[in-house]
């Protein structure tokens, strides 16, 4: 197995990343400074309608959280990627991405013009072009985010389970388009109230 990176990017807090990941790539996302939510969407690179589906993924694995062994599924239950290593332990896919509008609902009107993940998704999707539209922005994965679901059906945002240097590694099961927002949220503990940079690396096995 080659350790040579074909991809090695730092994504600053509040910035994003979009690009294609060839099938077979081992893709690693590293939480450089700890407690950082990484909002991530995957698409079949040949058919953007065949995109990541949080709910199909949850149902098929019979569990809410993502961790080693989780297969990320499309809306058609085609495997996009498999989590092959995870030093964090678990990741959220229920909490979605923050937006200016959801910030108003959750925290009040004063947050209307704060930066948000969906703003980054819009910016990077426009940059990418190729027909990506608002309706293609579906429900995402939040790597390193801790959203416990309790037995009585409650849902809360808690302090991250992550720490500096923790990473998640995925094997691309087909050619992918990946869209990332490195979350700028300041109003809840998902980034430890201090959003920080992440590193995205890819290598060919």
């Amino acid at each position: 197995m080659s350790d040579e990176f074909v991809l090695d990017d730092i994504v600053e807090a509040g910035d994003g990343w979009i690009g294609e990941i060839p099938a077979g790539t081992l893709l690693r996302i590293t939480d450089l400074h700890g407690n950082q939510a990484v909002d991530t969407l995957f698409y079949d690179a040949l058919d953007y309608a065949n995109r990541y589906s949080a709910m199909d993924t949850i149902r098929e694995q019979g569990a809410v959280y993502l961790t080693t062994g989780s297969v990320l599924m499309t809306v058609n239950c085609d495997p996009l990627a498999t989590i092959v290593a995870d030093t964090c332990g678990r990741h959220d896919t229920l909490g979605g991405a923050c937006s200016q509008e959801s910030n108003v609902v959750r925290y009040g009107r004063h947050t209307r013009h704060q930066h948000s993940c969906r703003t980054t998704f819009v910016r990077k999707a426009k940059e990418w072009g190729r027909g990506l539209e608002k309706r293609d922005i579906a429900h995402n994965i939040n790597f390193f985010m801790n959203v416990p679901v309790t037995e009585d059906g409650g849902l809360t945002f808690e302090d991250g389970v992550s720490a500096p240097g923790k990473y998640v590694e995925l094997r691309a099961e087909r050619d992918l388009l990946m869209l990332v927002s490195n979350c700028p949220q300041l109003n809840n503990p998902c980034n430890g109230y201090d959003p920080t940079a992440i590193r995205i690396t890819g290598r060919r096995p």
Binding site: G96, S102, V149, T156
Partner: peptide, 17 residues
């Protein structure tokens, strides 16, 4: 283009159902 958003609905109201 504006539609139900389940994650927004659940997280804003702290409920998984």
């Amino acid at each position: 283009a504006e539609r139900l958003n389940v994650p927004d609905t659940l997280k804003a109201q702290m409920s998984a159902h």
